[in-house]
């Protein structure tokens, strides 16, 4: 048996029982479109996520190098 050493043991039947009980007592039906635009829509609780600096600014040498290396061929323009 795999030992779930750091986790207190939850009897697996408890989960199954809960699933069966929930399945058998579910009576409310929802219209999918209404649900998704109403109670099932994500909560409005904005949080700022500022863009981080993840590249070195392009130096002169790098700019020169990037103009020298091969660029992928472009598709011919129309007209």
């Amino acid at each position: 048996m795999t030992a779930y050493t750091s986790l207190p043991v939850v009897p697996s039947t408890a989960m199954t029982d809960l699933h069966v009980m929930a399945r058998d007592t579910a009576d409310e039906t929802f219209d999918p479109a209404e649900l998704i635009s109403g109670a099932g829509a994500l909560p409005e609780a904005p949080m700022a996520m500022p863009a981080q600096k993840i590249e070195q600014p392009q130096g002169r040498m790098r700019r020169m190098f990037s103009t020298l290396i091969l660029q992928p061929a472009r598709a011919p323009g129309r007209g």
């Binding site: 929930a22 409310e28 929802f30 219209d31 999918p32 649900l35 998704i36 109670a39 099932g40 994500l42």
Partner: peptide, 22 residues
């Protein structure tokens, strides 16, 4: 997805706990 989401919320009595966004 939309239909099964409604089924999921119904079965798990998950109104206010389950959310879907596309």
């Amino acid at each position: 997805e939309e239909q099964l989401f409604a089924d999921l919320v119904k079965e798990r009595k998950g109104l206010g706990r389950f959310f879907y966004r596309r």
